[in-house]
Nucleic acid binder design. Sequence first.
DNA 1: GTTACGACCTGCGAGC
DNA 2: TGCTCGCAGGTCGTAA
Length: 304
Amino acid sequence: MPELPEVEVVRRGLDRWVTSRTISHVEVMHSRAVRNHVGGAKDFCNRLKGRTVVSVSRRGKFMWLNLDDSSALLTHLGMSGQVLVQPLDAPAESHLRIRMTFSDGRTAMHFVDQRTFGGMAVEERAETTHGQWLPASVMHIARDPLDPLFDETAFVTALRAKNTQVKRALLDQNLISGIGNIYADEALWASKIHWATSTQAMTTVRVRDLLANAQSVMSRALAAGGTSFDSLYVNVNGESGYFSIDLEAYGREDEPCSRCGSLIKREAFANRSSFRCRNCQRPPRAFGSDIPRSKGLARARSHT
DNA sequence: GTTACGACCTGCGAGC
DNA sequence: TGCTCGCAGGTCGTAA
């Protein structure tokens, strides 16, 4: 599933292959892929035609192509989105949602999305209080931990001021962006923190350690080309990442912890799963009992 | 204002 | 063999 490192890999690919090219034709195969575009599919195509891509930016899991007017092509990969640079005569993928060609007649850009949680929209850019120009719907997204301007002190203060579980806070894109279920579990494992720990019980030192581990695991994932359990995440050339072999907790139910040898446990968390070491990540006192295993995650692991 | 939770969506494996 | 069900999870809207 695309989280910050995976989105950054795609952004870099697009920056290389799409920047300075002029869009000549856009086709929307599935209207849900442009559901967030206010004017609908026809307007989406019209607004892109003739525009030149100036650069490609990202904040958290959102990325956008800055166009040569005041607009941007905002893209979110959702759970299964892929942006592929393909030869013009490449056959349509089974879940091709949007296809874009360029005036230079070289490669085409395909937006492929099996589960249609992702999508594209053309939006006007607006200036932030820090002088940055962002698409309107990205304004509320916090900076991510790999952003050079990420304010660590403000994050520590904001997290400790919340009244929730620490993993919920890590997944809150208004607090810190780019972290999804996989890297939240990995950062918590590295910090020996149970996901249900209260944010108000977190000391400044523990929050800083957690943040450092989140930065570390995502930097390593980025260097490996991202994490992939199956064909749902690929870069713009259709290649999978290799970081899944280095995951310590996520998807490793009933496998020994590499640190202490205790078994990794899977628990239900907010309609999804959370993985932790039974020994290194002890639950807070108020936390309850074991949850039965899921078949789905075992399947995901079997694809690696 | 803050927090929690369900809906959205599709492909695949398990179970019957 | 074919059908049904559960599961993966990021974001948003709504309820508490």
